[in-house]
Nucleic acid binder design. Structure first.
Lengths: 217, 217
DNA sequence: TTGTGTGAATCTCTTCACAGCT
DNA sequence: AGCTGTGAAGAGATTCACACAA
């Protein structure tokens, strides 16, 4: 299950998102050079070329990369050339904000089911989606062909709902709860942890550290 | 300005947050071994020791690290042993959710000023904090000793408010807008980009990539 | 001439393995 | 005996620098 020989590293994947965004912003160019892409993303041009070389060689010497094809290749890799049905678990402050967040739909991500354990919310609807208890998860996953869940519940409930999601066959989880949740190796988990990021920031802002300077990203 | 000889890397910083959290969960131990800390965080024990060695040597062979001192050291590095006054810019869905987010206060982060450009919101109060237009930022930063801002505005407004914040002397910015914002070298910027993380997840879930497997984090 | 693709060099992070402290 | 701290090895990631294609 671990990496074999060749492989796109996770850091490259991360940058692909930025290239993708830069391409949208770059307007109506037909070709774009690694140097221009580097400028738009704040990265080095050699790194851009190295990253794009994983797709096989399709840059044109003297001109750059064909923008349309590049976009297509990247969205193929990122999985944004298709639709993803997502279940949102937890409709508190954060969950509600995420539900209304506009950035998701544009990339083919759509929240099509909502779960919460508050009896006051269960049965109500939000933008046409009925809010269910977590015990409905497995049923809804099957019925609505859900492949991804967003976990926006309190820390102490997170492992429980993640286990339920894994039990329902979910293979992709975006977790906002500030805890280390455990999943089987075959399940993909990405964490977004506000507290950790704030701490990273306060650390940087605090400046000089014991024994030296912090190396910037 | 770049790293000199010794320096704590940004990846180490990131893990310090996890150690910190693990220590809180670890209960009333007096000493904790690198192995135990590794188990709690899912990391390797050698890595834990390497990370903690940046603080100078204070682990006790045969016993482990003194928990109380370790906590103190880590919060000193992370800057969570003090209070941070934060301005929230943008009180939309996400901004409102962040304002009510409980996880911040516990670490000494407190939102003490709120800015928005919606005339319908300006002048109103939220939990005792009056909502101001962005033109009040500099005044409020001075008056309330604000050192950090959270940017939760739409993508196209982000660079503008970041520039304003930088102009007001802010040196630490947590940006939620899904764009690459530019800041002077002396300003610390941390981005939390939901779209990028979702794409990372859909990429992982899409599985085999062109030319090979993805290497897991 | 311009800009790709890539070996080789460099730099950084992680793991190994073990000397030495308690 | 148990566990830290760290040199050295290993694994990756990034940058350099240049042959080569259009």
């Amino acid at each position: 299950m671990e990496s074999k020989k060749t492989g796109i590293s996770i850091t490259t994947i991360h940058r692909l998102s930025y290239y993708s965004r830069a391409l949208v912003e770059s307007g109506e160019l037909v070709f774009i050079s690694s140097q221009e892409l580097a400028r738009l993303t704040g990265l080095g041009d050699a790194l851009v070329r190295r990253d794009l070389s994983y797709f096989g060689r399709f840059g044109v010497p003297g001109k750059g990369y064909p923008v349309a094809e590049l976009k297509e290749r990247i969205s193929g890799i990122l999985g944004t050339n298709r639709k993803w049905n997502i279940a949102l678990i937890g409709l508190g402050n954060l969950g509600s904000a995420l539900f209304r967040y506009k950035g998701f739909e544009r990339q083919g991500f759509e929240i099509t089911a909502i779960f919460d354990n508050d009896p006051g919310k269960i049965g109500k609807s939000k933008a046409g989606i009925e809010i269910r208890g977590i015990d409905w998860l497995e049923r809804e996953v099957r019925k609505k062909k859900i492949e991804m869940v967003i976990v926006a519940v309190p820390a102490d409930a997170a492992q429980g709902v993640v286990d339920t999601a894994v039990g329902a066959g979910i293979k992709a989880i975006l977790n906002f709860a500030p805890v280390k949740v455990r999943v089987p190796g075959a399940v993909n988990l990405v964490n977004i942890d506000f507290t950790v990021e704030l701490e990273r920031l306060s650390c940087l802002a605090t400046g000089k550290m014991a024994g030296g300077e912090i190396k910037r990203a």
